[in-house]
Write a protein that binds this DNA or RNA. Sequence first.
DNA 1: ACTCTTGGAGTTTTT
DNA 2: CTCCAAGAGT
Length: 712
Amino acid sequence: MDILEGLNGPQKEAVTTTDGPLLIIAGAGSGKTRVLTHRIAYLINVKKVSPYNILAITFTNKAASEMKDRVEKLLNASVKNMWISTFHSACVRILRDGAERLGYKRSFVIYDTSDSISLIRSCLKELNLDPKYYEPKGLLHTISRAKDSLMDPDTFEKETANDFRSKNVASIYREYQRRLKQLNAMDFDDLIMKTVELFKVHEDFLLQYQNMFRYILVDEYQDTNRAQYELIKILSKRYNNICVVGDDDQSIYGFRGADIRNILDFERDFPNAKVIKLEQNYRSTQKILNAANNLIAHNKGRKGKKLWTEYEGGPDIVLYKAEDERMEARYVVSSIIDLINRGYSSSDIVILYRTNAQSRAFEEELAQYQIGYRVVGSLRFYERKEIKDIMSYLRVIQDPSDEVSLLRIINEPSRGIGEKTIEQLTEYARSNGISLYEAAKFAGDTDLSARQVKGVLSFVNIMDQLISFKDDVSISALVELVLQKTGYLEILKSENTPESESRIENLNEFIGAAKEFEKDNPDLVLEDFLANLALVSDIDSLEDGEGVVMMTVHSAKGLEFPVVFMVGMEDGLFPISRALDNDEDMEEERRLCYVAVTRAKERLIMTYARTRNLYGRTMVCIPSRFIKEIDIPDFAKEPFKKRSMSVEEPGKVASSKEKYAVGMKVMHKMWGSGIIVQVKDMGSDKELAIVFQSVGLKRLSANIAPLKVEEG
DNA sequence: ACTCTTGGAGTTTTT
DNA sequence: CTCCAAGAGT
């Protein structure tokens, strides 16, 4: 098979220019992933490069596994051991190899954001600083940015202002790093920073990896931060075969430390670099691309490119002015009903907003008309309490000296171990130079009351038992044992609320993830599972399914939909108020808007409201400046039938897989649990009458209502 | 140690 | 308005 078949001119050139620095500017929908995967295949099949000499880096696990799949298909061979991974996973792999040179144990644990925040809280306590004036979240952000720029605490102290507060922030950073090392832990930013440090200090170690990674590819280069830039710069220095792919117009993570200068200055940083632009778009109509091109032309800090397509036709872009946010939601939902009547599937449609809080009005309106929907990413899987709890249990089983995790679960579920008890145990641990967990074992020797000792020992007993099971049972079985022995599951079951049910569901999903991990990696153990888990967080990322999709513009990056609604197009909301008086922020907002526009394949509908309730006050809004900037004569006035709320022809709507019957218990997304009291046959659909605990009797369509049948 | 009340804040978030 | 976190009260 010819690897170059079906590629356009610039794409071909991007695939075959294998040696030397190469920057590929890949516009939205220009076949970027295609180029990357074909390039890897070309290196291996045509250039006879060993797969082990290639390092391909992406930003998300999803992107990495997608790339792996596609390369495997192209090569018709497994690439399981190839280095196609995220920055973070690649660094973990390197650090497991070299952490000992930095004074960490090979088995270091990875802290996620909330672990880091708890640790900062504990540092503040240690330093006697008030969390009111030193907000842990803000501190983590500051520290994180420092690490993104490769500033250690000493450099940080020198580089920042010489005032009292900054000095304290520097000492918090120093204390935080000291504690992390003591706990044998690294946070997300350490993974990159420490890898760079390792390479800078140990030349032999660096040489080994430089020789290994003779060809380096980086995806989403516009989103790299300083540390990531240094990492690839240092790794590619010997062979100089560095290919980066990105779109400066889609850099939207500046607030997380992404530095757009990395892509803008690539040619300066890597002399003799070749630049290839991919401007032909295979996704959207020309009308949508015109809007995108017009908008982004208002940015100054960019390389400049113009997307084009062979698809000239397409419907006009729609602009709708609503009286307020409720009317906005009504218009959007009535348009959705109309589109479904015309044959679109609900899953073809996405509602994009700037802030998560905006989803509410649309959820309510969609639920009212029984249209299924999915909200993406407001609360992520690994941030849920029950998942954090089970993860903490597993971490303590793996390493009882992991104090942050221990503190999280020592009284979860409640066993009467309160603040006082923990304080005394910590004191005992300090004065005897032992870990908190060991101190708990000796609870009987402390001056705790009999009741306190009982609680602590019952916890230690359960944990010791679980630890003894660790090496003998599978990971998923261990998870189930934890849930059972600690009584965690039982307590959730007895609560019997929609909330507890969903927690149980999440825990089952977690067990499922553990089983999958065992299947994919039969030779790996709990330690590996935990390391993997800290980095794989988007278990509930968008899967194929039915229902209108709702998400922030940020989470929409990389996705495409036939129909895109961009809502809340008002100055102060999008662009967000904080960007109004800052040119740099405004340009990032504009790029964000560009990302939103370029998600649309066929139809783009923008809406704004004249007034909007914000924090209980009614605000008068002005239309987003981006609407003017898009400046196209193609805006249609009233393209949809006004408020046609009835669905005469269901069109291509969700088919109900479940069979409903009177007496069944069901769960509704909005209204919680209810019981079916009547089922009416309506041809291809069924009308269900359901009595909900929360709202009483409702009549819903079986085909489109977001319902789940409860067991039993 | 748990529950209720009050107050303060309220973008985005691939790892 | 509405969600959380910290403080007071039981």
